[in-house]
Amino acid sequence: MSDTARETVPDDVTPAEPATPGSPVADPAADRLLARRRWPQRLRLARVHSIWRQPAVVVAVGILAVWVVLALLAPVLTADPIAQSPDLYRPPSAAHWFGTDELGRDVFARVVHGARLSLPLAVVIVGCSLAIGGLVGLLAGYLGRAADEILMRLTDLVFAFPQIILAMAVAAVFGPSTRNAVLALVVVSWPIYARVIRSAVLSIRSSDFLASSRLLGVGPWQALRRDVVPNSVGPAVVLATLELGNAVLMLAALSFLGLGPRPPAPEWGAMIAAGSRDLSIWWVSVFPGLAILTVVLAFNIVGDALRDRLDPRYARGLR
């Protein structure tokens, strides 16, 4: 949280009359001043242009942009990913850039079409997990006491199980499918968002500018909407960016174990599983593995850069 957001109201800004919690703001001018002081904190996400000075971030964003373009243009750029041919286990060549698999399917087409499946599903998993975990973290951190105790114990209960084991159990109970794989990963992913958002909310609750808002008569729910939620966006965005790569990995892991999208869907994890049966046909598993590696690494680089930009205290600690 920036130092500007922590500043208290100047001495010359005082309410016209005593205010009580939940009552209207006594001095509109003072409230506008507080709002202006909070706006830089709310708009930190719009001032991340400095990350473009880092070559690694530019390369990472370029890699993600290439994958997005390939995913969007996959039907135009490649052949049918499930079309079979008599050319079985052909190594990479001019006719088949990434070779063919055990059914004669073009591996390049399957890798590119796999991006159309893995990337949107990763966004859905992170979005649903952020919505659930963010709501739990906000309520636990802001309401405190009984709500905090109940919600955090529920979070600890989910944390008690290893992520991949719990995801496997949920997916196995409902059966292997794309929908059930997403459901399983949302179930195991939301607690980390709850923990991070709760920590940010607890820090904001003890800040000077929130105390000043209460003195000016701002109600608790109005303060939650105007102060707490906007100032919690930064940590949530950083975590969501980092977790996009983890979502791709976890989805590939479930598919590798046969608990993800059903064949013949071109999913990267399932392709690696098919190639792992015979390592002499290395191209069947290496190219989807490289796809996962580049996407996850790119998301991690962008997430680290956003963390450095949105958390000045962390950046100063590195120096």
Rank of each mutant, 00 (worst) to 15 (best):
L239M: 14
P81N: 04
V107S: 03
W52P: 10
Q41G: 12
F174V: 14
S213F: 03
V302A: 00
S199C: 05
V66I: 07
L139A: 11
R105P: 01
A270L: 01
V228D: 01
R90H: 11
R319M: 04
L43V: 08
D148Q: 13
A131Q: 08
L279I: 13
I125K: 06
V13F: 14
M152W: 02
R195T: 01
T178V: 11
V238D: 07
P55E: 01
S206G: 09
L318R: 15
V9G: 05
S280W: 07
E243V: 09
S232P: 04
A252I: 08
I82M: 12
V182M: 00
A95K: 15
D80C: 03
A253R: 10
G141P: 01
L310W: 05
F161A: 01
V187H: 06
W221G: 03
A109I: 00
L121P: 00
R179S: 03
A253N: 14
S276R: 14
V233N: 02
A160W: 13
V123L: 06
L130E: 11
G127Y: 01
V59Y: 02
L130K: 11
M152N: 07
W67T: 09
A274F: 03
V170M: 03
Q54Y: 03
A19M: 09
A5T: 14
V59S: 08
P120Q: 01
I165V: 15
I292C: 04
D80T: 07
I204P: 00
E243G: 09
W52R: 11
W268I: 01
A171P: 02
R116W: 07
I132A: 06
W39M: 08
E149T: 14
L151A: 00
Y142A: 10
A171C: 00
L210M: 09
S232T: 13
